[in-house]
Design a protein around this nucleic acid. Structure first.
Lengths: 236, 236
DNA sequence: CGACGTTTTGACTTTATTCAAAACGGGTGG
DNA sequence: CCACCCGTTTTGAATAAAGTCAAAACGTCG
């Protein structure tokens, strides 16, 4: 659960410092600024691995800015089938909704820190401050674009194509042969992100290894050994 | 293609009038207002069935508000596999992106009318007018929420569940037994929306008919005969 | 009325899932 | 430090769900 809810004004938080925690090879996310007009009301929260920030159905009275670590957003059907909507890296916001209730569950994939803002304050800030409105507009444009891309991946790609596109997305845009990076999440999270089963993800990675597209020292360390072939599969 | 590009100021357009064209049983979308500060620059455009409003990769210098008819947003992979991202009904906006290029293709499913705004003007309006910023923020919140729901449907539901949830979404929230409505799109569009094949969609609808969940006079007229069973399948 | 595009139905194939079990790895306590 | 334990990952064999290929039925529009 929540391990620390420090009432530290956001203005004193070294937001950029989170970059130090950035895992090798992870995608670059040096977002410049926090929501300035809200800094005084902000609180910082730290989460252990697998802790829940909020759950589907909770009321959405706060939004959060991820400052370090990775958060997974998930939706779960009545019978337990789960879809990971997104892995949210440092610099992005979560909990923005029209509705009064959260439509997804947010959990820490790694240890995570977030800055917490009151939704009411955000609404006011959007109305009063053009820069804040634009910052959130940009955030939402990104979220919408990402969700739409994922719809194509999940809806129309084969297992191999999905895994290839996932690896490339995690490796970052400038991925090159020889790059090594750590997958921060387990096979189950990857499977639910790509709408596959753990077995299919595992088999596909094994096949990639056998074909020389990747090398793996352990299950979480990926070395890209044939980026072109991966890009081909992911069709980029 | 474009059948008419009339230079009519948007202020003279009966935006609410589009409701008259609303197909029986379709979802209610009486969006109140256009983007007021942009009215003078707005142009109205009419599209024939299957006409293209813009294509993936076109530069995104304009955004559009749908005033009647249904637009489909699609993404297509290199080999032709297609995913319908959304069916956009009257009252909603399309073409909002961070990027300079459209990330999807927009085509008319039915005859369509839209109001066209210059993106540059929109950006200015967002900076200057809080109401406009909030209107677009709401639009994007809706788009993001919808895309996330669709990710669950496409990623984790069976063919039967997908078709059931599609029928219910198209029928509207207050759907009741006996309601009849027209599917405005063909089986191919439905299939690409649900990430299935036309054959699977057709077979599933036939099974629903055989099981008494729906009745169909022709391929496009759906009568709901067991909404509870459909809701069960869609798990709502 | 005839032709073409769409929808439906049928038979078979493919892909990913399911169920099952073995291998691996990280952490704990002896 | 090593052995053991538990959760995760990998591998294997069988199954199921949706896809593919093919053709018939339907409807619509000249």
């Amino acid at each position: 659960m929540l391990t620390a809810v420090n009432a530290i004004p956001a203005s004193s938080i070294p937001v950029r410092g989170a970059i130090a925690l950035r895992p090798t090879g992870a995608r670059p996310l040096p977002r410049p600024a926090t929501l300035a007009p809200l800094a005084d009301r902000a609180r910082r929260i730290a989460l252990d691995r697998d802790a829940t920030l909020f759950s589907e159905g909770d009321d959405a009275s706060r939004i959060y800015e991820v400052t370090s670590g990775i958060v997974r957003l998930t939706k779960t059907l009545a019978d337990g089938r789960r879809q990971v909507l997104d892995f949210v890296d440092s610099g992005r916001f979560i909990g923005l909704h029209e509705d009064a209730l959260h439509g997804a569950t947010a959990e820490a994939v790694t240890p995570v820190t977030v800055i917490c803002y009151e939704s009411a304050g955000v609404a006011r800030a959007v109305a009063e401050d053009a820069a804040t409105a634009q910052r959130l507009l940009a955030e939402l444009l990104g979220a919408a674009a990402r969700a739409e891309s994922r719809l194509v991946v999940v809806g129309r790609m084969t297992a191999e194509e999905r895994v290839a596109s996932f690896l490339l997305a995690r490796a970052g845009d400038e991925a090159a042969d020889g790059d090594v990076f750590k997958l921060q999440m387990g096979r189950a999270d990857i499977a639910d992100y790509l709408a596959l089963t753990v077995e299919t993800v595992s088999r596909t990675l094994s096949r990639f290894k056998a074909q020389g597209l990747v090398a793996m020292t352990d299950a979480h360390s990926i070395e890209l050994t044939d980026v072109d072939a991966l890009r081909d599969l992911a069709s980029m």
